[in-house]
Design a protein around this nucleic acid. Structure first.
Lengths: 163, 163
DNA sequence: CTTGTCACTATGATTATCATAGCTACTATC
DNA sequence: GATAGTAGCTATGATAATCATAGTGACAAG
């Protein structure tokens, strides 16, 4: 392809987000980071992306201030990737994507019974379904307020990928 | 590129959404549809995408049941594209992207003063900012509940693109 | 001293994207 | 009635992003 058009100068906020988020690899890596995967190899294995794509996207995300690199050992030098505040604030986007898919992207019974990932509001224990505010206590839902529980089928898939 | 990996068989709901939404062109086209643009040429002009990309993505979105084609004249045959219920339900994703960008993707004062797009809750008249529930009346916010008002700078940009 | 782990980089084939031009079927204007 | 305009595309060729596979460097364990 020719160099893809740059959207960073548009005044439209969706266009600016699309510059970063309109990319499968970025979305998959962010998903893994939100699920607590912090190491290069874990992310590469779970996403199924090649190492140079993972490498390129992590560098991009770091440049954008969405992830930070944190060393966890010196010899040999190793580090892990963690979401910054700007990155954690993307939770709303990923959560909305998950909600839409739960409502529209599965055949009946494909997930067994119930959603592919269940989210529980930590503060009150309510299963929030795909709502944007807790149906139990009415609180808005952000990263950290929720505990996600993958269905058995999804857990099995992740175990297979980590294989 | 080689054929890109297929994500439609993953059990992860974010992966399934990413299959469709992890694409700049799809996101830009959806944005325009949410803003009321329904004609091929209007979408192509505003997004800046080439006609064959717009054509390919509209076909994809139609196949996925996210947009429908509606004829509006016979001679010559012409039609417009509209979001289906499944498409309208993506509003939460685009709205979350817009909120994130409003909070993080602009330099100070770049939008003049205030957000690039202001959203007013129709039911109570409150400016909702980037909240997921109305700060005035506490209602959850979906497509149709909000009235969007682009800033003067964004309006000018759109007028220039429509040229 | 061979095997294993982690985080990558290098290489080459494939294909999506962009820019530009052209096409079809009309309508409106000169 | 010949030219220009509009809407919605399709065709073509150059460029570059992606994938699959293999390889590298630094160390640790057996």
């Amino acid at each position: 392809m020719p160099k893809r058009a740059d959207l960073s100068d548009t005044y439209c906020p969706v266009g600016r987000s699309a510059e970063l988020l309109g990319d499968r690899a970025v979305l998959l890596i962010l998903r893994d980071l939100f699920f607590g995967r912090r190491r290069f190899e874990a992310i590469a294995a779970n996403t199924g992306l090649g190492p140079q794509l993972v490498s390129a996207r992590l560098k991009l995300l770091e440049r954008e201030g969405v992830v930070g690199r944190h060393p966890y050992q010196d010899k040999p030098p190793r580090h892990e990737y963690r979401l910054t505040a700007k990155g954690k604030d993307l939770f709303g986007v990923l959560y909305a994507m998950r909600g839409w898919a739960e409502r529209w992207a599965y055949q009946d019974g494909e997930t067994g019974d119930g959603p592919a990932i269940r989210y529980i509001h930590r503060a009150c224990g309510t299963d929030v379904g795909t709502a944007t505010m807790c149906p139990g206590c009415g609180a808005p839902l952000g990263y950290g307020d929720l505990k996600g529980e993958p269905s058995p089928a999804l857990k099995a898939e992740q175990a297979r990928r980590a294989g």
